[in-house]
Design a protein around this nucleic acid. Structure first.
Lengths: 345, 345
DNA sequence: CTGTTAGCGCATTCAC
DNA sequence: GTGAATGCGCTAACAG
């Protein structure tokens, strides 16, 4: 791309046509790599287009029925929560890696209001602002699925297909991660573990809970407690206090996010327990917070960037070819730091 | 909004016109609250539009010259950095509060590549995808300013106007925050302080450095060291080691972000220094990390949500009325936790 | 095979 | 209140 026209209006196909001495139609054919023009004129047109910095008007294209070349993402969370949540930024970055190469853009909305999310989908789709969307934070009996189906907005559900009502999904296999986690804890001799989970409404919370329970059962371990939180320090603290004050407290706790895991370290310490000697702590989803903690927290790490990229690939397929199959991305891997130790007997 | 047409194409003005038995023009007038239709027909039209769930085609509007009703934000950072950086998500949430009410949407790009950012501005603007953009992470002699001016893309610069080359800016007064910080440290008897700064290329880094120096000078305090970092744990650690190994080490250090502040706590501890008894630590920009730290870190907290909202308000004014004046938002306030103590003499 | 012409999509707006 | 033109790119029908 060279210098675009200074100041004035953006160049159009008509302008290229004039300069090249051909009709607008010919220019369109040339620019879109379609037959109907000789190689010579095509080359000439391309040179001119490049010179004046022509970019197709997305409005005109969309109006013609070509789609908006835009995908949408609504993040319905409290802004304060999002400060801690490293997931979305990486996820978006992953999306971007894929879509920008294909000429797509991302439309983003961040709002704490649930009703707003539904309204946004309707408006975006009706106004033709997006060609498809990513549905994150999948919930059990998610009302959004029904709406999307009803209005016909193409969507990729980011979450376990079991709960996606047949929609195309991209998911990371939390059950597999749970297996890795429990296997490792078993190896370290832990027989009583607990789970500080996320909100019960989230599908991934349920999947994790069930998988943890199953894996424990398989090995004759006990899941001696499970408490749901809203991922905050306060709720994590409370959950952990409950779990540790049991008559037979766990020797290891799995936390669904980094912040509650940190709360766990504190509560343990306050109760006179050493981490990891007296209590092993494992965080689900890694973050800088885990590295920075004292001791550094072992965590189940996913490649969120790749996750976003996979979701984008599937959504673009869905948008462009009308269909796409669900994709399971690589599960989380256990990265060991210093919060896991052999269970004290 | 009631049930939209099932399955088929989205409704258009023409459809409403047919149903109402009037011309498309009349419908347009009615829908936009403009004269040219009787109150009776206007009401009838509005009812029909609502019934069939009509939403204006953004493509058609944009094509007509009405603008895309979209503003853009490019975040040029390493995805890994963004995980820790709570600023952008809150900033975006603040933007959203303002723009969605005015019918605008946000287009987002996250990329580590600088050249991509410039290319994106050109493309977005040429394709008519955005009506204006937010320019964040302002740098000294920022090449982006020149590009934006040249292509005529309306922009609000988020950063100190001194370095914005006359562009409209929204900024938070870091100099004021520096004053608050230094005043408090002086009050606590600190006479030798140091600064672990962000990258030297960022304008806000420079502004903070200068303000800190000035405020120290004013009170007869010494700035006994200043090291630039890239905000990471590693660089923060190194910076802090350098500062503390001086013959006359500081009794308090101001850190430009939360992660380096945490690094500071660690380095101090490793050196046998107690925080805050032997070394006071102050983080610039608050975050959950500060709360979670041990001890919890005192910090200079900004209302980032309000910051984003202010930036959006100004950008929309700029886009809709062609001009807007720069706005200074409220400076950061010092929130005291437990990392600040009276200087040991 | 190379190229032109005309009309479409949708909301807006000016002249009647 | 109506009709018609407008903005911009795409494409079917048509001509050299």
């Amino acid at each position: 791309m060279t210098t675009p026209v200074g100041g004035g209006r953006r160049p159009t196909i008509a302008e290229i046509a004039t300069r090249a001495g051909v009709s607008p139609g010919a220019v369109s054919y040339a620019l879109n790599g379609r037959p109907g023009v000789s190689d010579a004129t095509r080359a000439r047109i391309l040179v001119i287009a490049n010179e004046i910095g022509w970019v197709p008007s997305s409005a005109a294209r969309a109006l013609r029925g070509g789609g908006a070349a835009t995908v949408g993402l609504v993040i319905t969370r409290e802004p304060s929560d999002l400060g801690v949540e490293p997931f979305f930024m990486s996820f978006v970055a992953g999306i971007e890696q894929v879509i920008s190469d294909r000429g797509f853009a991302l439309m983003l909305q961040v709002t704490p209001r649930k009703d707003q999310e539904l309204a946004t989908y309707k408006t975006w789709w009706s106004a033709g602002r997006v060609d498809g969307i990513f549905l994150t934070d999948l919930k059990v009996d998610d009302e959004r699925l029904e709406l999307l189906k009803r209005i016909g907005l193409p969507a990729v559900v980011v979450g376990d297909p079991t709960y996606a009502e047949g929609a195309t999904t991209v998911w990371s296999d939390d059950a597999q991660a749970a297996q890795a986690a429990v296997a490792r804890l078993f190896e370290l001799g832990h027989l009583r573990i607990a789970h500080v989970a996320g909100p019960a409404s989230f599908v991934h919370t349920r999947v994790r809970s069930e998988a943890l329970r199953r894996e424990c059962h398989l090995r004759g371990m006990q899941l001696v407690g499970e408490v749901n939180t809203d991922y905050t320090l306060a709720s994590g603290t409370q959950a952990c206090e409950v779990l540790l004050s049991q008559p037979e407290p766990p020797t290891a706790i799995v936390f669904d996010n980094d912040v509650t895991a940190l709360a766990g370290v504190r509560v343990a310490r306050a109760a006179g327990l050493k981490v990891p000697e007296d209590l092993s702590i494992l965080a689900w989803d890694d973050s800088p917070l885990c590295e920075v903690s004292e001791p550094p927290l072992s965590a189940l790490r996913r490649d969120v960037l790749a996750y976003g990229a996979a979701a984008a690939t599937v959504l673009l397929d869905l948008v462009q070819h009308g269909e796409a199959s669900s994709v399971r991305t690589e599960g989380a891997a256990l990265v060991e730091r210093r919060s896991l130790a052999r269970a004290r007997r």
